[in-house]
């Protein structure tokens, strides 16, 4: 069934390259790349919703949930296995999303955006009031293990980096195929005309529901990886500015292709770190200007550049 196309092949190559590069990357760049991959996971889910015409301003809810799952599992329950926790946090996020999704799948446009935002701010409020979990200061995350093996602090970042690469690769690979599937196209159909979708015998609410749950699970995995590499979680992960950052990255990369989210996330981290370095007083302006330029000149994100080349190459 899994017939390979160019993208699937390129993804495999990129995965192997990323793993090899990880061995020679300086530690700070590996950290930055891991964070970018983790955020890209959240953005992939967000882009999936955006393709169905829905912008979630509350992916921070699941991002934070994933992070706190890692933190609580390691610090309070003694579970530190990295792979195991990823599954657990995806499962927990999936359950919560299935519950909230029942309500959310009935709403569209600004109502959907505001409701998702509201739910993530509820989690933020609850965490701020919970002094057992460190309130706004958050708490530190125990070092993760991999299938019973405890990596030394030096190895840890490489382990999490490789894990992030693997998870990101699997996500990109299956998301790419999902976009080509009936369910994938149904999203765009919902965006264009829900009534026609219903006449085709597909329930738009169900389409949105499934996408919302999938996006939540991806966001939780992204949050878990962030917590593992950063070693600390705080309620800021659920704050609306964090969710806004994901929307920023989604716009930067574009919704045209699954890989766009990864390019967007990486560039966002690189731009931000350069901006911090070059302009400690005005770094926000550099980020803002970048977003403005992208919206003015590349309304479909950076991905439209690569697409332009492809079309150009075929025609010339």
């Amino acid at each position: 069934m899994l017939k390979t196309d160019n993208t699937s092949r390129n993804l495999c190559i990129a995965f192997v390259l990323l793993l090899l590069v990880g061995l020679i990357l300086p530690n700070w760049l590996a950290f930055l790349t891991t964070i970018a991959l983790a955020k890209a996971m959240v953005v992939v889910g967000l882009v999936m919703l955006m393709r169905a015409g829905l912008v979630s301003f509350g992916q921070g809810l699941y991002y934070c949930l994933g992070g706190y799952t890692v933190g609580i599992a390691g610090q309070h329950l003694g579970i530190t296995d990295a792979v195991g926790i990823l599954f657990v946090s995806a499962f927990i996020a999936g359950c919560l999303a299935a519950l909230l999704g029942l309500l959310l799948c009935r709403y569209r446009e600004i109502f959907f955006a505001m409701l998702t935002l509201a739910f993530s701010m509820i989690l933020y409020g609850v965490l701020v009031k919970t002094s057992e979990l460190g309130s706004t200061d958050g708490f530190n995350v125990a070092k993760v293990t991999l299938l019973g093996w405890q990596p030394s602090p030096g190895q840890l970042s490489l382990v999490v980096y490789s894990l992030a690469c693997l998870v990101a690769f699997l996500t990109a690979f299956f998301m790419h195929r999902y976009y080509q599937s009936g369910m994938g196209f149904a999203g765009e159909a919902v965006r264009e005309n829900e009534i026609r979708v219903e006449y085709l015998g597909v329930s738009p609410q169900r389409v949105v529901f499934i996408k919302y749950v999938l996006a939540a699970m991806l966001a939780a995995v992204g949050g878990s990886i962030t917590a593992m590499i950063a070693g600390h979680v705080d309620p800021e992960m659920a704050y609306w500015t964090t969710s806004g950052e994901f929307v920023f990255v989604a716009l930067l990369g574009g919704t045209g292709h699954v890989v766009a989210a990864f390019i967007g996330a990486f560039l966002f981290e690189v731009i931000r770190t350069i901006a911090f370095d070059l302009a400690p007083y005005t770094w926000q302006m550099i980020l803002g200007t970048t977003l403005l330029l992208v919206i003015f000149f590349l309304p479909k994100g950076l991905w439209s550049l690569l697409k332009a080349k492809k079309v150009g190459g075929n025609n010339v």
Binding site: N27, W28, F31, E236, R272, T273
Partner: peptide, 16 residues
């Protein structure tokens, strides 16, 4: 360096 951006961002900048 600016301290804004939250814990995760600051861990990254500290590494830098």
């Amino acid at each position: 360096i600016d301290e804004a951006g939250g814990g995760t961002k600051q861990v990254g900048e500290y590494r830098n």
